[in-house]
Write a protein that binds this DNA or RNA. Structure first.
Lengths: 340, 340
DNA sequence: TTGAAAGCGCTAACAA
DNA sequence: TTGTTAGCGCTTTCAA
């Protein structure tokens, strides 16, 4: 079943098809009378402009590529939601792809997106190596990185202040009286995580505490891995009264492991997360955490990208947003009596 | 910065541009030698095929529209993830849009998607009224509804067997000894919910139980609304030993309300959900529930849509998938001693 | 104010 | 096997 085109409308209206185009695009060089007549007619005929054809001549698709490791992740799905809203408000639509945390897939998706002539790309990189692999493309298509700090790199990104967030967390626990705070889930391959660990270390030093780590040997964070790590951790003797988890998903895993051995949170152990994913506010979870302001991240990311598109890639910008402490029920003041 | 086109490659190779096209599309009417020469050259020149131009002549964009009420919802984001994977495996990409549960927005998005020449649309309808509003478009673009059963309607959909799922749930609670089972969250405006309620009623009758309802007066399910409803419910005298919640999100709200008044789950009250969203498997939540097989829903939906696209909308199909009980820790055998 | 015509990058039918 | 050409649906000069 053929779609009705500009030509069909032109024929029906008895004008040339360029006149119809003018009516549709809101061009000023057309009489008000013909315009309204054509508009009415195209409505009657169920005409819908072919965006693809328009894109060919306009050289802009009003399409943004969104590449994330997985929408099936509370942090990213929330981000994706806000990105869609913000983009749509500005006349753009989103092509969504999951990279499954694979930088080679990211590369392929870049090619795919460029082939589809997206006006720009929003990327939640799978890790630090993303940048190198993607580098050849970055000069050819406006791109904004989200979440990952690429400090030394001359590319635009939007991120929360991970270093500062970690400091806030330690300070909070310190004020609750904790002096032995374990940093849980430190891992390599992500600047984000490196910065969080550094912020933690700096704050420890500031307060005269000894930094202690439980390293994440897996390549990424998940509830499952957090659980496995925590199991091991709890099987050894404990020297800490609070855990600062590198991510909320890690914290969720810790909760599960703690539950299993009858370790009560927050009575026996205070637990602090990072990210404020949706799950953390659930009943019985009620995780105290450092928030990444996702709605803000999303809208700043979209705005940054659109700026870049309009100004034809003039320079780059680093936008660092402030994290905030979200106080719920997983942290309690230090008590020496806490079961060990 | 201009993209390199097929013409640039042709000029560099000293052939006509249709020859380049033939090399690129894998046409057989070209010598092996020229093909490999051109392929190599286009790689060297960083040539990427312009999918938009190709779409114009091929009359297919290999793009699918995905409209859901909100990716920021664990059920839908999981679905979206699997839909992307399945679609990509079959050579398609996804344009994602959130309707924010507004049928007028759904309508606008349909127009937008059609303008973008998507090959088909996957829709998680916001409610029963979606069908009426969208009806005029359904003959113009291949569409598959997901999740919502549109029983009497001659349109394709994929859904879980909600009626059967509710029966399974009641049977499970019955076998645990429960005789007073409250159905929580019944609401209008959604066949899905109607079917669940009907399945519940049928099973009650089968076992000789009296069906009891706590109606959801809100227009949709969320943790917050579940919580508010449960608060009211618990403020009155209770005559039930188990609650069958219409959705997992409702169940999560119930948990929160129960927690607040010191009602223990499952010791004092058994709680059964429906959907098996990701949150339900979290530590401390461990909600026993009826699963919607999302990965399967996603792949059946994509396959159904692609079939429809290829066979030019020949007929429609209703695919009903089987739900399954996921046993966790929120249900316990009935004990008369349970605190009331 | 309107129409004619070129051209966006590509595929495919037709010629050579 | 290769080149020439038309045309996909649209916007936009340029002429009238």
């Amino acid at each position: 079943m053929k779609n009705v085109t500009i030509k069909d409308v032109a024929k029906a209206a008895g004008v040339s098809y360029s006149t119809v185009s003018r009516a549709l695009t809101g061009s000023p060089e057309i009489s008000e009378e013909t315009r309204s007549r054509i508009l009415q007619l195209s409505k009657d005929m169920n005409y819908t402009a072919n965006t693809v054809a328009r894109a060919m001549v306009m050289k802009t698709t009003k399409l943004l590529g969104l590449i994330l490791t997985s929408v099936n992740n509370p942090f990213m799905s929330e981000l994706a939601y806000h990105i869609d809203r913000q983009a749509r408000a500005r006349g753009y639509n989103i092509i969504l792809c999951n990279s499954s945390r694979d930088s080679e897939q990211e590369r392929e998706l870049f090619e795919l997106m460029m082939g589809r002539q997206v006006d720009g790309i929003l990327l939640l990189p799978s890790g630090i190596e993303s940048y190198n692999k993607l580098h050849p493309y970055l000069s050819r298509i406006p791109t904004v990185f989200i979440g990952e700090n690429l400090r030394e790199v001359p590319e635009s990104y939007v991120s929360v202040d991970n270093y500062r967030g970690a400091q806030i967390g330690v300070e909070y626990l310190y004020k609750l009286g904790h002096r032995d705070i374990l940093y849980f889930g430190r891992r390599r391959g992500s600047t984000t995580h490196q910065l969080r660990a550094e912020g933690y270390a700096a704050a420890c030093e500031h307060f005269g505490l000894t930094p202690r780590y439980c390293n994440n040997t897996f390549s990424f964070s998940s509830v499952k891995y957090g659980y496995q790590l925590a199991k091991q951790l709890f099987s050894r003797e404990r020297h800490f009264s609070a855990i600062f988890a590198a991510t909320d998903t890690n914290a969720l895993g810790i909760m599960q492991a703690a539950e299993e051995i009858g370790l009560r949170i927050p009575q026996d152990l205070s637990l602090l997360g990072f990210d404020n994913i949706r799950d953390s506010s659930l009943p019985r979870i009620e995780l105290t955490t450092i928030e990444q302001p996702m709605k803000m991240l999303a809208s700043v990311a979209v705005d940054t990208l659109l700026d870049k598109i309009q100004n034809d890639q003039a320079g780059y910008s680093h936008r660092i947003l402030s994290p905030a402490l979200i106080e719920r029920s997983s942290c309690a003041p230090y008590t020496p009596a806490a079961k060990k």
